[in-house]
Design a protein around this nucleic acid. Structure first.
Lengths: 205, 205
DNA sequence: TGACATACATACCGTTCGGTATATAAGTCA
DNA sequence: TGACTTATATACCGAACGGTATGTATGTCA
């Protein structure tokens, strides 16, 4: 522990960095943006986090961890029913996107778009794919448990999981458009109702 | 009609330009990309279409027109039932995203993301918002007709419209991730089933 | 054919991009 | 205290960005 110590908190600064990537995406974020948002100088940023790509990588990690703790956590609870879990998950996800300065969109979403355009560094491309795969896996596992505890075959877990992922992605994207919060909550309720019906099998024989 | 005539077809070139924006987004597309994709020189591009922003604007128009003719058209047919119309709409939309060189994502989607990040020129921001509003309006109008002809109150049209828009957006986004076509078609079938149930009111009293 | 208008090609503009060399300030350890 | 190590600040780098001036080729109209 020798030499001059840092005068800033690395975690706090990474939080600011993540916020910028969150709002502007990888291609849309410039080093000047990060300098302005953090209050640090460019060499300090590079010394602490490496280059732009590694800052992005660290931001993705932080983002996932944060989303995992605020939204995905509901899908892993076993003290509430599946229907309630999904509702809380979707609502928490929507809430995390809200921001006084307007919606922030979704970092994973813009990552996938940037990746699709071939703008992400190779290593980050792999990470984004892995994150998406993990998310879907989480959804499928959730429905396997739910179907099992409802005494139903787990064969539909895959389809339901993909459905929830699609819906979740769509909802987050919709916040960047002019759709009202009330409308989105209606969508959540409708979708939760559909899934609940599928789990309870009230209608199909 | 004096002077040397153009040696390229403006519509065809605009199609190439649209394709680049489609795959790479506004921020991610450089003039060099467009030069390479069209085979024209930079001054020719600027002379024919103005600057980057106006090329983007023209691309958005073309994109919307194209999507309108291939996918949205199904929502305006009255020779098939509502359920079938939605299924055909979603499948056509998915098909239009497919491409030999990998999925192309969604231009409106990346536009909204870019817009959310504040990277779009002012005029384009307004256009994107208008396009989104028009899309939702189309969805809502579709469900109003469908509910009416099913002898049900149209009060749910707004929620169903937003739901379909959310789902449609999510599906297009999912193509940029590793999700298989079969999985996405399962999602389509499941969603269509949910909506059909709502329209037919088989389960609710 | 000649005057003119437009398309095309080269080469260039100022600015901003991601990233860094260098010098100085400010700490730690002996 | 003094040697050493690290953080900060300024100033700068080559490359790529969006956009254009200029010269020449090629067409239309009279």
């Amino acid at each position: 522990m020798k030499g001059r110590p840092r005068t800033f908190d690395e975690g706090q600064v990474l939080s600011r960095i993540t916020d910028v990537f969150w709002r502007k995406g990888y291609v849309g974020t410039t080093m000047s943006d990060l300098v302005e948002a953090t209050g640090l100088t460019k060499p300090s940023l590079y010394a602490a986090y490496g280059n732009k790509a590694s800052m992005y990588s660290a931001s993705l990690d932080r983002y996932i961890e944060q989303q995992s703790q605020t939204a995905y956590v509901h899908l892993k609870r076993d003290d509430i029913g599946a229907t309630k879990a999904i509702r809380m998950f979707l609502k928490a996800s929507l809430a995390s996107v809200k921001h006084p300065d307007g919606p922030k969109g979704c970092l994973v979403l813009s990552s996938s778009t940037d990746d699709c355009g071939g703008h992400l560094p190779n290593h980050e491309t792999a990470k984004v794919h892995a994150m998406n795969a993990l998310a879907q896996q989480t959804y499928v596992a959730f429905f396997e448990r739910a179907l099992l505890s409802a005494g139903r075959p787990t064969s539909d877990a895959q389809a339901l999981g993909t459905y929830l992922m699609t819906l979740h992605t769509g909802l987050r994207q919709m916040t960047t458009r002019g759709v009202s919060k009330a409308d989105l909550e209606d969508v959540v309720e409708f979708s939760v109702g559909c899934i609940a019906q599928q789990l309870d099998s009230c209608c199909d024989q």
